[in-house]
Design a binder for these strands. Structure first.
Lengths: 335, 335
DNA sequence: TTTAGCACTCTTTTTAAGCAACTGCTAATA
DNA sequence: TATTAGCAGTTGCTTAAAAAGAGTGCTAAA
């Protein structure tokens, strides 16, 4: 379909545009990319690439910018996924070697690392609750009138919450709670305790309604917080010229603020480890001018959730994907 | 010093400027504020107020804007601190009645409420560690190789952290830890465990170095997180015309991102409950164009930390201070 | 097939002119 | 003496017009 030179021209235009954010002219290509042809030839190729839908022209006297189709071809066919410097490799290594006791810290570190290197806004969410089974629930008396509930999951996540009472709780009661809750919930997905389940638990310990009601309430609150999103590097938008108009920046930041939106986007990923959504490929209207790369990260087969990078369509796909691939390798102990 | 009419004019100019962000002309004062004098008279007063340093002129053909001295006089002498609507009172009441089990939730709710009503960026930090004494430390086995440490403070704060081991921990060891750590740290301020204290603890349980070292490390990490700042409403900057230039907005958001800066500002408050820093009254260069109102909040004499509101110099001091005063009353059970 | 060259198009920058917003002052008024 | 009407003078803002700049597309030649 595209001959070699056209591919080269397309690649050059895209990479130049990614780095400058300015429409690319035939002259620029000749100057900066050593293709060995004159600007007139490049011009002809660019005109054809435009006809074929890979490039666009903001107006007659401007250069070309890539279309979504252009970016897509670039990502699928032209992309070099080893675009990562020695310093960056070293930095990632150091970061990932930090010792973590809580699995969520690992997600935060990974997210921070990606954002630090790419400068794009990076969001993380925990694993889908159906992939995250309850392994153990522990109730602990912190005082006579204060209880702590700790939920451990198979994936290694730990949720804890505090419940306060107006009357004393006995150690015997606590043991009853430990038994009942584990009995009912162990092995189940980490999801909110629904009404039927609540009734079921209450029926077992019907003399303890006053103790159990607040527990369920607080546990649900803690579980709900599990799908809190973690966000890093949002303010870096200001580094990108496409966000130099205050409304664009505002809009971008407000998208990141809407948890539901982000959850949906991150969870909608296909089975692949890495998914790329370019501009209008995103279903949501608000994301039409942005690109998103998502990355499901796992350690030893355990789902740790999804990390997403959000930036301008002119995102440095090559670097972003290289880094994700490298981190994935590192997380799974390869060298 | 200032006669009544000049005070009225000053107040009118400041309040008009606070609500419009536009330089205020003598004509506007006559139109909107019923002072009973002609624009020429107002003009004369404004000229004198300018000579005295209370007002400034961006240029000849513009109206006047308040100077720092003007705002200061307004805050100290002219301010009405009951500028709060019935709806707002109702909203605050509802919010503050939410049942909280963890004291930090109360701080978050308070911070959110203030930000929701004022639309200014609002930050919160926990109490100064010297005001926050350790009441109890509990170690809990979560599995054979996982320990949870919970620190309770007199103020009602709860910090918990996880420690993982490569070998089994026995219940006997846990009891030893409970005894030793409480023995050494109970009643002490919630501060990082320093080297001498670490040595001291280790000397008591010299056979358990491998168990204790990671505990201290993790506890210090948890304690360090205590002075994490909580931030709400930062993106509301975009609502204020003074931040319509992208650089101003960027600068503002990056100030909020620097934890150290915020800590210093919030902790530097005087003994008063409410402190107001207007523009150049702030020591830090980056804050010269902003105003900050800090609010030390306590419940029943217990220090819960400091909340700060950050916005343009043209902040609605009246509303901000009214709200803080009202919340303070509510938190302490007055009606 | 490739290229030099140039007319043409469209945007951006610059310049100038006219307009609008206020003030400060003068002289009149209560 | 305090207040006010009226108007000249300043300054920034808006609009219009002109000039400059950046690239393309096409033609004709190599």
């Amino acid at each position: 379909m595209l001959n070699d030179r056209k591919k080269q021209v397309l690649q050059a235009v895209i990479e130049e545009y990614i780095s400058t954010a300015e429409p690319v002219s035939s002259g620029t290509i000749v100057e900066k990319y050593d293709l060995g042809f004159s600007s007139a030839t490049i011009r002809n190729d660019m005109a054809e690439l435009e006809n074929m839908g890979y490039l666009e022209k903001p107006h007659t006297s401007a250069g070309r910018i890539p279309s979504v189709k252009g970016y897509r071809f670039y990502v699928d066919e032209l992309l070099n996924d080893e675009n990562i410097s020695l310093e960056e490799i070293q930095y990632i290594k150091t970061q990932l070697e930090t010792k973590v006791n809580e699995i969520e810290d690992l997600t935060k570190i990974t997210t921070n690392t990606i954002s630090d290197i790419t400068h794009y806004a990076t969001v993380a969410i925990g694993p889908n609750s159906t992939n995250n089974l309850i392994k153990d629930i522990k109730f602990i008396l912190l005082g006579e009138r204060m209880l702590m509930a700790v939920i451990l999951t198979e994936n290694g996540a730990i949720k804890e919450t505090i419940i306060k009472y107006d009357e004393d709780i006995s150690q015997t009661q606590v043991e009853g709670l430990n038994f009942t809750f584990n009995n009912k919930l162990r092995g189940k997905p980490l999801e909110k305790i629904d009404k039927p389940m609540e009734e079921y638990i209450l029926s077992t310990m019907s003399d303890q309604i006053n103790v159990i009601k607040p527990i369920i309430q607080q546990m649900n609150k803690a579980i709900e917080e599990s799908d809190k999103i973690y966000l890093k590097g949002a303010n870096n938008v200001f580094d990108f010229p496409e966000f130099k108009k205050i409304d664009t920046a505002k809009n971008f930041l407000s998208i990141l603020d809407t948890k539901e939106e982000m959850l949906e986007v991150l969870n909608s990923g296909l089975a692949k480890d890495i998914n790329v959504y370019i501009g209008e490929e995103n279903e949501r209207e608000e994301l039409k001018d942005l690109s998103i790369v998502t990355f499901k990260h796992t350690v030893g087969g355990k789902d740790l959730g999804t990390i997403g990078i959000i930036g301008p369509k002119r995102m440095n796909y090559s670097k972003v994907i290289s880094i994700m691939k490298y981190i994935n390798k590192k997380l799974n102990g390869e060298n």
